[in-house]
Design a protein around this nucleic acid. Structure first.
Lengths: 332, 332
DNA sequence: CCGCGCAGGTAGCGCGCGCTACTCGCTCGC
DNA sequence: GCGAGCGAGTAGCGCGCGCTACCTGCGCGG
């Protein structure tokens, strides 16, 4: 039964005993407490003992003493967000982990599981879009003190280039290809109405600036026949290209168009957004807009550390790089 | 500056003072401590005060005193797993939240972000597949005591019907449609080699039992030309249907086939796995295999509570319901 | 009328760590 | 020669909660 010995976790006291110093000294060494001079000899012995004994600080105790946890909660709206971001989030997590923080992401909006901030006691909660007043109240009640974007500082994200820039580029792309009469396709059952509206507005504005005609916005779902209806209406209306809210919408539209006997892109060009894996897998491959999510993820980590540790912010959200990935759904 | 008052969170001491009882009493009431008699009158006053003051127990302190956290970490292998599961995970989270537990899911395998169990101090870690010895060692070091599936109890999941049943159903479906010569398509760059192999073996075995010919397994990627090559080879080989590892693979194959001028399913039928949203959005819509993830999610919550709270297990993994969703990629 | 038992509490320790407030001894400037 | 100053460390409190060990008053049997 070696479990008897292994059962108790190694604490700072064990290290102190082992080395022959006080527990406080151990703490100072392990935390690199600034303003505390510990001789290199002692420091080395403590670190050695910690490694040898396999010391792991007790999170709960540390959190309690510190008065805050080292958890950063990222709230993403459903799976609607480009999966490329999901991927580069790993990078953020790595950076944060280096600073001792755990990045927990929660997807899914209202009606789903109860928000993790109620139970996780995160130090910072970061949202992709602004939070509703109810959500903010709930966080406050749960003791969350750092919220990004700050309640009150209204929807910075929605106004940021990263959000509407993609929509503009979709339009530019179609314009370059000679399209002059376009329509917008959005998602019917979405929690992301605000984001959709923001993008749609940006697209319409750009199209008008370029002298293009915009027939309107249509909500599309693949379950009912709404996509078939939409395609028919567009065809009758002389529309030659569709700006889709995201790649799912683009695929729905493209599928319906093919089913209706239209050729893509000759009869109807379609461009999506987010450059999800499906954009490449679809046949014909879908043109899409890719955002430099690596940069976004890096920025995310920076904001988190700024809030949690007070580190300085060196860059801004606006530097998000966005570009069109042209594929056959527009270029043939 | 009302922050001065609001800054300090409400603790059990505040409630005790407010009600005029000891802090211990407050604790007994709030935790419904079994074996402790508290009069209904006092109980009501305590609960009332707690609600009025907006009391939220301090997670860190509770975890410290209890000696364990209330976090359950679920480790999923990448985004490869059917997204339908992802959705019904909300249900598990809800059940667990009711019991006071937070369900945190981590996706992404080795090479990605450092595992959350190192920083989150979860009470239970649940994996979709078995963990490697390294992972188990890392968890042990981090102080994780409850691991599912239990290290040692080898790969129950991989042998479970839920995992290979789908592969068998893919084959059955193609057999029913009259196909007698099939091939398997798998993913090239995957962290899920074990799962792929398990499924492939199951598919081959079933096909042989049914007297079908299996040409072999080909790894396919959409980036290089491997899918086009594969389609050409299959066509030359007289293969009439493809069993794809998942919907992404199915889409890749279907796209390559269409590009090569083949008709789907007349010249080549394709069936995917997981019934991801893209299966429905693809044109032609892809037949796929759907697993009853709601049931899986419910089971997951049950296992978690069994490990954490010692609640009894009432069902087993084997009851996972699996069925084919037939669409045009096989049925025309 | 005594004492026993039990409902209904209370006092306070322990969890492991962060960190402030102290001590101690030695060097160095004048 | 002496104290100021500093490097190097220690004692121990406080964080908020779970829970054990104890305490008290009251009803009731003998």
């Amino acid at each position: 039964m070696p479990d008897l010995a292994a059962a108790r976790r190694v604490t700072a006291v064990d290290i102190a005993k082992e080395v022959g110093v006080s527990r406080a000294t151990v703490g100072f060494v392990l935390n690199n407490t600034p303003g505390k001079k510990i001789s290199d000899a002692t420091r080395a012995r403590v670190l050695d003992a910690a490694a040898r004994l396999g010391y792991q600080p007790n999170r709960a105790a540390a959190d309690l003493a510190r008065g805050r946890s080292k958890i950063i909660l990222l709230v993403l709206p459903g799976r609607l967000l480009g999966s490329s971001l999901q991927a580069s989030l790993d990078e953020s997590a790595r950076v944060l982990a280096e600073a001792g923080y755990a990045l927990v992401t929660q997807t899914g909006g209202p009606g789903g599981a109860p928000p993790l901030w109620e139970t996780l006691n995160p130090d910072v909660v970061i949202g992709w879009t602004t939070f509703t007043d109810d959500e903010v109240a709930s966080m406050r009640l749960a003791g969350v003190r750092r919220i990004v974007p700050r309640p009150g500082e209204s929807a910075r994200y929605d106004q940021a280039p990263g959000v509407s820039e993609g929509a503009r580029m979709q339009v530019d792309h179609l314009h370059e290809l000679g399209h002059r009469r376009i329509a917008l396709a959005s998602l019917a059952d979405s929690q992301m109405l605000e984001l959709q509206r923001t993008r749609a507005e940006a697209a319409v504005r750009r199209a008008e600036d370029l002298g293009m005609e915009v027939v309107g916005v249509r909500a599309v779902a693949h379950a009912d026949g709404s996509s078939a209806d939409a395609v028919r209406a567009w065809a009758a209306d002389g529309v030659t290209a569709i700006v889709a809210y995201n790649d799912d919408v683009a695929a729905t539209v493209a599928g319906a168009a093919i089913a209706a006997g239209l050729r893509i892109p000759a009869d109807l060009a379609v461009i999506g957004h987010d450059d999800s894996p499906m954009a490449e897998l679809f046949y014909p491959p879908l043109s899409s807009v890719r955002m430099d999510t690596v940069e976004a993820a890096r920025y995310l980590a920076e904001v988190a550390l700024h809030e949690a540790d007070g580190r300085p912010l060196t860059s801004t959200w606006t530097e998000l790089d966005t570009y069109v990935v042209a594929r056959k759904s527009t270029t043939g």
